[in-house]
Design a protein around this nucleic acid. Structure first.
Length: 481
RNA sequence: GGUCCUGUGGCCGAGCGGCUAGGCAGAGCUCUGCAAAAGCUUCUACACCAGUUCGAAUCUGGUCAGGACCUCCA
């Protein structure tokens, strides 16, 4: 079952072609470094794509870059470089951030400016069919020609007209008409077209590239909820008028990211760039946090939530680390029927959550159940062949989920240390500080001066550092969240 | 103003008519020199008011609160 924004309810998923999925997701306009919210889409749709592949579909996944628009033009004139240089720069920056996320690349990442001919052909078709009209070097789409306008966003044209925010433009026949092609003047970038030198309007590029790369009727069209209207509504209008068939069978929209319950905006100054988050924290935390919340819910970012996420990851990775240690032992694995059945149940539960509109938080709930059972069997216990079978199954389960979500593949011990260092940094404590204190305390312990050693430990605890004495006399530390 | 969504315990977060979600935090216990980790047990819930039903966090209506979109936006 998949929630379809078109109709606003969950539907049984189907495809046009048997066992093949075409998916088009609206990508960013590349005029600046992207903020964390921009990455929710790529991370979620990567998972979605992996899940479809897991279900046996071949997936063709298109994620586009809008590399020509007014924001890009304004920004390039500010920076005194061409729009091409500007957009190439930020595409490269984005792709480098994307690569650091260690998730799969889309099948295609087309750029608008590489498809100007397709866009012009597309607009020509619309004019020929009577859905678009030329008006002083611009081309507009005539929304009253498309009876189903509003079917995605649930708006009707009367309501829209009643609103105060509709642009009045003399060149338009109807205020709701939107521009397909607009003239470029002065130094603005543009291309020759039957309607003069100009450039495409905002919505047309996605329709043109989608039909070019995936055909007139696609299975899934995705993007952020903020694109639902007008962008996706207009795409439907253009594409369905041109092709006379349904543009996309499923519309999938991911929700946005807030910071401290506020929308991120430049005026509030609370924008977190994806680059900064990845640098200050870690891509793994980013991915885990994003998938910890259902994709259709607003994800609220703040320091406390990030710290909790780090704590959850430490819990998972600690279990994985121990599991790997157990697997490297010489002990044979012996199948245990009870454990085997338990894992069949765990797998079923996970699949049920995934099949029910991609409920990733539910999957994590199951994972923590398994981890509790794993700890119960393994921590400070004598490992038997049966338990090793459990551990083996546990790792396979984690691997399955991790592969889908692009998670749990970090080097275990290094990553745990890294997470702890991150928490340390947020408490402004240095590593050397702690290590000195531990040395000092262990000397006191050796001489059985427990009064002193406990005092030293409590000092660290006051600063948020917990110690763990190992049976071999060494001491580990971790940060209390 | 129009259209729509949401409201779960100290925090985060599932739940889609009956069966413990889960994580963090709190309390008690086991373990330990004492701790920690880990495990076990346990305390805080379903905004409010009606209705439907044998039974509702879950469906319906209303009230209150918050949010989104209607303008560039992932």
């Amino acid at each position: 079952m998949l929630f379809n924004s078109l109709g606003k309810k969950k539907e049984v998923f189907f495809t046009n072609k048997k066992k093949e999925v075409s998916m088009y997701v609206c990508g960013p306009t590349v005029y600046d470094l992207l903020h964390i919210g921009n990455f929710r889409g790529p991370i979620f749709f990567n998972f979605f794509r992996n899940f479809l592949e897991y279900k046996g579909y071949k997936v063709i996944y298109v994620y586009n870059y809008t590399d020509i628009d007014d924001k890009i033009i304004n920004r390039s004139s500010e920076e005194n470089i061409s729009t091409y240089e500007l957009s190439e720069k930020y595409i490269n920056e984005f792709e480098s951030d994307y690569a650091s996320l260690k998730i799969k690349k889309p099948s295609f990442t087309p750029k608008c400016t590489d498809h100007i001919d397709d866009i012009i052909d597309f607009i020509n078709d619309l004019i020929e069919k009577g859905y678009a009209y030329v008006s002083s070097n611009s081309v507009f789409f005539s929304i009253q020609k498309f009876k189903r306008y509003g079917k995605l966003s649930g708006k009707n044209t009367e309501d829209l007209l009643a609103g105060h925010r509709v642009n009045v433009n003399d060149k338009k026949e109807n205020p709701l008409d939107f521009v397909l092609w607009k003239p470029s003047s002065g130094n603005d970038p543009g291309w020759d077209s039957p309607w003069g030198f100009g450039r495409p309007g905002w919505h047309i590029e996605c329709s043109a590239m989608s039909s070019k790369l995936l055909g007139d009727q696609i299975d899934i069209h995705g993007g952020g909820v903020d694109l639902l209207f007008p962008h996706h509504e207009n795409e439907i209008a253009q594409s369905e008028c041109r092709s006379s068939c349904t543009f996309a069978n499923f519309w999938v929209h991911n929700n946005l990211i807030n910071f401290d319950n506020q929308k991120m905006s430049k005026s509030l100054g609370n924008i977190i760039k994806g680059r900064d988050f990845i640098r200050d924290y870690n891509p793994e935390i980013f991915k885990f946090l994003i998938l910890s919340v259902h994709y259709r819910s607003i994800l609220n970012f703040n320091k406390k939530i990030i710290d909790q996420t780090i704590g959850n990851l430490i819990k998972i990775y600690s279990a994985l680390q121990l599991a790997n240690t157990i697997m490297s032992s010489d002990l044979n694995i012996k199948v245990d029927v009870n454990y085997k059945n338990e894992f069949i149940k765990y797998n079923k539960k996970i699949d049920a959550f995934l099949n029910n509109d991609l409920n990733t938080p539910g999957v994590f709930g199951v994972l923590f159940d398994v981890i509790r059972k794993f700890n119960l069997l393994s921590v400070n216990k004598k490992i038997t062949s049966e338990i090793k079978f459990f551990v083996d199954s546990f790792l396979k389960l984690i691997d399955k989920v991790g592969t889908l979500m692009g998670l749990f593949n970090e080097s275990k011990s290094d990553f745990i240390m890294e997470l702890n260092l991150l928490l340390l940094k947020s408490k402004s404590i240095t590593l050397i500080d702690i290590e000195n204190q531990i040395d000092f305390r262990n000397k006191a312990r050796e001489s059985k001066n427990y009064v002193l050693s406990d005092k030293l430990r409590d000092e660290l605890l006051d600063r948020g550092i917990e110690l763990k004495d190992n049976p071999d006399g060494t001491t580990n530390w971790s940060v209390k969240i």
